[in-house]
Every structure is written in structure tokens, then in C-alpha cells.
Design a protein around this nucleic acid. Structure first.
Length: 435
RNA sequence: GUGGGUGUAGCUCAAUAGGUCAGAGCACUGGGUUGUGGCCCCAGAGGCUGUCGGUUCGAGUCCGAUCACUCACCCCA
């Protein structure tokens, strides 16, 4: 029989990996809510037009990477390739500007892009996405980046850098664009075919080109920073000053351009050199004209997205997350203690201790083996002798020590002895709970 | 979308120049064992060698296609 397989580039996340996802999501929610962000959930499918208008008709995402299709009534829809457009759409649609609490949003979920799969790049991938509307103070730009760094640090992520740039605004960018076009026109013969095409549709993107020939040809090209209008220049300056003031390390990368048309002024990326070609772990920027362009109020906006697959790939390079192992394994010897053992197991579970037991009994040896395979931290042994005395033998598997504990004190005992709790990452220090 | 590499049990890998070739280790299940695990011993389960087609008396081994994975381009999170 031929078997049905998952779609190319769309992956199952198996139980072994799910712990990482939960840990990352939990940390993200903790941090985001600390900064005043509230969760919003929008549909995975939207009208195609929404993305065409926001991301840009001539971007690669819209031109050749979207999962677009007509539904049964012939309406053009698309699987969302990113989250910003949907969040902005929802904000406009529900008139959220009337709600003073509705300024900072986050959403976590799957995005879809039809690209050739590669390490850290999949057709269904997941993003943690944050958006803020209605504030144009550069203080916010800095805060957004500080939060991003805080989050990554909380996860213990190593080897990443923050790159920032300013793309100017509709007032100053056209000047630069024109000069750049002129420059590219002159250098046209030296450019690779891709760039020669790009210089017409989206000239800024030639800066992204990795072909040596192009990079050489670009030497002496006009630099965006020099074209920034007074407002943009001051804005950018303040962003940098705030970041420096908060001891956030960053690099100004004048050649960093983003692939979505809506970005302006501040843009930033968190990059790594440990993921091969997919070096961006997270990225975002300001998009002050977007909400107006989508038919809403003229409110500024800024946001970023983090690629969860990439993030988890990086985290897994560093260390292993021990999860799924029970804190305690209860071994029962003989028939009589079974009920008492079951009651103890339940009491422990209800107090937050993860407990497993041997179904079907068996020799102590076989139960110990079972406990070992499950990597239980402690084994509680309850046999007829112990039952008669009202105690249980508690063995610490790591230290190979054991003591007798009164059955009524078991819960108390483990509250003080559980070291590894679910979902925590060893070595990172405890993840503070939000409550 | 373009180019390179790979594809044998859950995992890591064997299988002389096409000819008992479908194997091993780990993991898994049961037992050795009615009171102290990780070792050891025994047994068991698990693959129509990614799939389809071709060459051949005969293909895991050669050829083609296809699918998947992977790396790079491209793109971006």
C-alpha cells in the first residue's frame, strides 16, 4: 500500500521536541506580558489582497512564495506568509484604537511560504510576532529591541548579534532611490542578471546580493544614511542613544534591507553564524504608513517576528533539555500495598510532583530497571514490611542514597527534594513564573 | 524556481567486482529474578533495501524517473 506522507517542508513536531516549543512559548509569553503585550489570534487564511497590499506586489514573498488559491466561490485567498498584515487588519476591523489597552500585541503561530526547504527554512514555519501601534517615539523602537534581547538572553541563546539600520521615510527615501537607480544604471553591465532586474523593481534589494561581482560594483554606491531627512536622522540617532544607554550591543549595518515593502525608518535583525545560510533568527522594523495604506487610521507601527524553528535549532545546539522524565517512580512489592501506593502516587501528583509507577508489579529488580529506563530521579519502594510500619523507602537515584520516610510525610518530603522541574532548562537558571 | 550530495530495521551502520544478502550494535518487548537499577545471559519483535520502471539468467549493488531529506543559490524568521 502506498502511504500518505506529510507535505514537503511541513513537519510534525514530535513529543521529544515539543518540550522545547513549550519552553520557548512560555518564556515568550512571560517576557511579552511583562512589557505590556497582549495576545491576539487571527486566522491563518486571509484575502490574498491583504498581503499583496501590505507586503508589496513586487516582493518575492507575494510574487512567488505565497500559498494562494481560489476558494469554491472563486475568491482569492492565501495562507498567511507573515503575521503583521493580519494583526493590522484586525486592529482596523475592530476599531481597537478606541481601547487604551490595545497598543501592544503579540501572536504565536504557523506561517506559510512556498520555498525550497532547507535547514532552518520550511514551508510551514512558526513565528513569535509582536506589534505596537500608535507610538512613534524612538524610545519604543529601543524598547522593542531591548525586549527582544531580554527574551533571547532569558533563553540563554549564545552567538547572536543585533543589526540595525534606518530605511528613511517616504520623504527622504525617494531621493536616495533615484540616486541609487542612476548609479545602478551606470553599473548595469557589471551586475548579475538578478540584480539587473531588481534595480528596476526594488533597487534597495541589490544590497542583499552576495555575488562578488555585484558587491564590487556597489563600491561607492550612495549610502542611505546620508540621505535621511532631518526627522529620520534624529529618530535614528535617538534609537542608537537609547540602546547604548541600556547597554545593548548592536551594529549599524547600512546595507541591511528588508524584504517587505512596508518597512521604514528603524529596521533590525538578530543574526547568527551558526545556522548556515539562514542567518536571521528574528527581524522587524517600523512601518508607519501601513495602517493608513490598509484603509485604517494613520497610526504608526513597529514590530518584529522570531523564527521559532531557527531559535530552537540554535538552543538545541547548546544543551539538552531533560523533560518527560518522572520526578518519582513508585515501586510496589506484593498485593497489599498497591492501594496505599496508588493513594500516595495521587497525593504526590496533586502536589505537583510527576510520578510514574509500575503497572503489573513484578520483581523489585524489574521495577528498578523500569525506573531507570524512565530516568526517574527518585524511587519510592513500598512493600508489605514498609506498609506495616507506615513508611516507604525513598531512594535518590543520582546520589544512590536512601532513607525511610513516613507515608504521611511523602508529599512534604518531595516538595523539598524535587530539583528538576518540568520544562526548565538546566543551566539557564529557573524560568521565573509570571504569577 | 536552479545546482550539488544522500536514501538498507526506531537510531548508527554492514553486505567481496551485480550471484543464499537482507545482517550487526544500540533502542524496544519478555524472561533469568517475591526485596534494591545501570553489567551480564537467554528469547522475541522489527526491513519486500524510499517508490516505480529498465538492463540482466539474477540488482540493495548498474541505468532512468519520481518522492523525500540535505547543502548552496535565491528568499527571509
Amino acid at each position: 500500500m502506498e502511504r500518505v506522507q506529510a507535505i514537503r517542508g511541513m513537519n510534525d513536531i514530535l513529543p521529544d521536541a515539543v518540550h522545547w516549543w513549550q519552553m520557548v512559548e512560555r518564556t515568550a509569553r512571560d517576557v511579552l506580558e511583562l512589557y505590556g503585550y497582549r495576545e491576539i489570534r487571527t486566522p491563518v487564511v486571509e484575502k490574498l489582497e491583504l498581503f499583496a497590499r501590505s507586503i508589496g506586489e513586487s516582493t518575492d514573498i507575494v510574487e512567488k512564495e505565497m500559498y494562494a488559491f481560489a476558494d469554491r466561490k472563486g475568491q482569492w485567498l492565501a495562507l498567511r506568509p507573515e503575521a503583521t498584515a493580519s494583526v493590522v487588519r484586525a486592529f482596523i476591523e475592530h476599531n481597537l484604537q478606541a481601547d487604551p489597552l490595545a497598543r501592544k500585541f503579540y501572536t504565536i503561530g504557523p506561517m506559510f511560504r512556498h520555498e525550497r526547504p532547507q535547514k532552518g527554512r520550511y514551508r510551514q514555519f512558526h513565528q513569535i510576532d509582536a506589534e505596537v501601534f500608535g507610538i512613534d517615539d524612538p524610545l519604543l523602537d529601543a524598547e522593542v529591541m531591548v525586549m527582544l534581547c531580554d527574551f533571547l538572553q532569558r533563553l540563554g541563546l549564545q552567538g547572536v548579534g543585533l543589526h540595525i539600520n534606518s530605511l528613511g521615510c517616504p520623504r527622504c527615501r525617494p531621493l536616495f532611490r533615484d540616486d541609487l537607480k542612476k548609479f545602478l544604471h551606470e553599473r548595469s553591465p557589471q551586475l548579475c542578471p538578478d540584480c539587473d532586474r531588481r534595480r528596476h523593481v526594488n533597487p534597495l534589494r541589490v544590497f542583499d546580493c552576495k555575488v562578488d561581482r555585484c558587491r564590487e560594483a556597489l563600491a561607492g554606491a550612495p549610502e542611505l544614511v546620508r540621505y535621511l531627512c532631518e526627522d529620520c536622522a534624529r529618530h535614528f540617532e535617538k534609537v542608537r542613544a537609547y540602546l547604548t544607554g541600556l547597554d545593548v550591543a548592536f551594529t549599524v549595518d547600512p546595507r541591511m534591507v528588508r524584504g517587505l515593502d512596508y518597512y521604514m525608518r528603524t529596521t533590525f535583525e538578530v543574526v547568527t553564524d551558526r545556522l548556515g545560510a539562514q542567518n536571521a533568527v528574528g527581524g522587524g522594523g517600523r512601518y508607519d504608513g501601513l495602517m493608513r495604506d490598509l484603509g485604517g487610521p494613520d497610526l504608526p507601527g513597529i514590530g518584529f517576528a522570531i523564527g521559532m524553528e531557527r531559535l530552537i535549532l540554535l538552543l538545541q545546539q547548546g544543551r539538552s533539555l531533560e523533560a518527560g522524565a518522572p520526578d518519582v517512580f513508585v515501586a510496589v512489592l506484593g498485593e497489599k500495598p498497591v492501594l496505599e501506593a496508588f493513594r500516595a502516587v495521587q497525593a504526590l501528583r496533586r502536589s505537583g510532583v510527576a510520578v510514574e509507577m509500575a503497572y503489573g508489579g513484578g520483581s523489585l529488580k524489574s521495577q528498578m530497571r523500569r525506573a531507570d529506563k524512565l530516568a526517574a530521579a527518585h524511587v519510592v519502594i513500598l512493600g508489605e514490611e514498609e506498609l506495616a510500619k507506615g513508611v516507604a523507602v525513598v531512594r535518590n537515584m543520582k546520589e544512590k542514597s536512601q532513607t525511610e520516610v513516613s507515608l504521611s510525610d511523602l508529599v512534604e518530603y518531595f516538595k523539598g527534594h524535587i530539583v528538576s522541574s518540568r520544562g526548565r532548562t538546566p543551566g539557564f537558571g529557573p524560568t521565573p513564573s509570571s504569577r
